[in-house]
Write a protein that binds this DNA or RNA. Structure first.
Lengths: 352, 352
DNA sequence: CAAGCTTTCTTAATTGATTAAGATCTTAAT
DNA sequence: ATTAAGATCTTAATCAATTAAGAAAGCTTG
């Protein structure tokens, strides 16, 4: 079972390689009889069809979009927000008849680097921390690139939301309800895997730009409401899991004075905070208000959150990449919306 | 800004193309000085690095796994069971440093066929109906293939569960609890998009093998318990959505006599049935027992279901494909497990 | 019958790399 | 000084296709 190529078939029939190629890709260039014979011999020899790699090389197109995400793929597929985005992106790719190549992050192997070796026509980069080496590798490929959420890269299209405004909207919601004792739990600030209380300097040096900006929105709204931000307990977690949210919830709710409202920068985390509240016998929203983010897992739980058009963003990213070079760099901010559900209410009793 | 290739750099420096290639892929073959100069000139000229397609052609490996799924990608990313599988598969790919290429189904375009053109080293095919043309296209590629859930393809590895046994376990559970008036709702039997009551002939001619087998399990358990299967109302839906499950739930619960237990072949559908029960003011499990399937969205809702090792299956599929030809065709059935939660209980009052 | 037009197939350039084997030149050891 | 070994670079084959342009033959038409 040696390799069968166009040439093998050509030799067998005493015709040229070009003729065999035409038999597969341009039937009108050939007599029906010869074409039939070629296809027949191809079948006999077990020819697998024109080699896609060679085809791709000659034609100069890969027929695929590359996708790079900050986390491990196991994580990506566990994150409802990411999934929603993938869904939109995959749909755009599907409509164009191209594949979506989900890439692992380069692991310093040098021998085989997934980004360097990816056979794609364009890249979508999502949620990478500032200065992540994978981004440089993507840019080195000189292919169309669109960045989603973070980091902003000058000269390339960017898709995201107005993070400071969205963060402020979440905070303002509970502040407007009358809450004065807030707590914050955030994931995805740093890459060091640290979980625990985070002071101002750690907050401000977060390496994920979008989360940094979102946090800035929390802070601004608090300060505009007259709160001392430095006094707002801020808990950072390393993984966006319900369990991590629960632990953070316990940490925040164990403080004295106990926060009456908690802001979480993902819905998954917020669900964990709800778990913690339940553990402690606190009633939501009577004893505690909770606000999530992204509206990715909030509906059933009745969670107040900020809705993001994740699927539309994915679809837009895909279309932008597939449109080719016609698309000029643009910085496109999608709308966000505060969705008020049953997890937020005015505080039960106000302190003077 | 013309195209820059290895040759461009070679010409500029008056060295051979091979030398430039070595500068990138085998630094030890070159003097440090020359290598530095080459990389410098490459930088100046804006060289994007060795072309991955050409590289792939020469090296004979694509660095990617192809994934084919029966539904549109928008659907795939909305199905918790599929996502769980993807997660496992993606993780296996990630561990091996290869990408995962999610392919759209060929759309009869002939001009550009995603399966024919996919630059991959192997294919994972999931949940395709019997005789779907995409399967033939995959097999024509003569690459390693593993099929998941359906259809079984002789000569290629197959991964799934013991569908008849799993279906029977779900049915037996409610039968053992004492239920005698069952109802069934299933999705993914046919491709014709039909929703409504399905008689025996339609049930048995379902084009998705796994679902056909699962249904056979339902039937066998019922008959073993002395029930007349033909009298069991069977509702078929076209989409695996909560809303479709709710409609099916209304149809089933509107019958006289009303079923006291409903079997759904997905958790998402089962959640819809719970919605319908809530609409009608029925209490679960007091007035109605519901069993889902796959344990993909069941936990929070307290749904009794059949747990499948979806991530393990995905990981196993990936490893099988990445292990190369060493892996002989095997038919591997993963364990399933009945997980009893709060959605099932003995019927409230028994009829003679 | 000759000119012109089609149809059908071939020639050969092109796509962009990798790598074994060979050619020089330098260095070290005898 | 001679020979072997090592370092450094080149030659040329190879991977598997696509496609514009050319050639040979068949067919029509005036």
């Amino acid at each position: 079972m040696a390799k069968v190529t166009l040439q093998t078939i050509a030799d067998r029939l005493g015709v040229s390689r070009a003729t065999v190629s035409y038999a597969f890709s341009r039937p009108d260039q050939l007599s029906d009889g010869l074409r039939r014979r070629i296809l027949e011999v191809a079948g006999e020899l077990g020819y697998a069809g024109p080699n896609p790699t060679a085809r791709s090389l000659r034609l100069g197109r890969a027929g695929a979009l590359g996708l790079l995400f900050s986390e491990t793929l196991a994580y990506a597929f566990a994150d409802p927000y990411a999934i929603g985005f993938f869904q939109g992106l995959a749909t755009a790719a599907e409509d164009a008849g191209v594949g979506l190549l989900i890439l692992p992050l380069p692991h310093g192997d040098r021998r085989s680097d997934p980004v360097r070796d990816a056979v794609v026509d364009a890249f979508c980069v999502m949620s990478l921390p500032d200065g992540h080496p994978a981004l440089a590798e993507v840019l080195a490929r000189k292919l169309p690139v669109v960045v989603v959420d973070e980091p902003y890269v000058a000269g390339h299209p960017f898709l995201g939301i107005d993070e400071p405004a969205a963060g402020a909207a979440a905070a303002r919601h509970v502040l407007d309800l009358g809450h004065r004792r807030l707590g914050v739990v955030m994931v995805g600030l740093h890459e060091d895997g640290h979980s625990g209380w985070a002071g101002p300097e750690r907050q401000e040096t977060a390496s994920f730009a979008a989360m940094r900006a979102r946090r800035g929105g929390y802070q601004r709204a608090c300060e505009e409401a007259g709160l001392d931000w430095a006094a707002v307990p801020f808990y950072e977690v390393a993984r966006n899991s319900r369990e991590a949210g629960r632990r953070a919830g316990h940490a925040l709710l164990g403080r004295d004075p106990r926060p009456s409202a908690i802001l979480a920068n993902t819905d998954v985390l917020a669900l964990g905070v709800l778990d913690a509240a339940a553990d402690l016998g606190l009633r939501v929203p009577a004893d505690l208000s909770v606000v999530g983010f992204s509206d990715s897992a909030a509906q059933e739980a009745g969670l107040t959150t900020i809705r993001q058009a994740k699927q539309e963003m994915g679809a837009a990213a895909g279309r932008l990449l597939l449109a080719g070079s016609a698309a000029r760099p643009e910085r496109r901010l999608f709308p966000h919306e505060l969705v008020v559900r049953a997890s937020t209410a005015p505080p039960a009793h106000r302190h003077p």
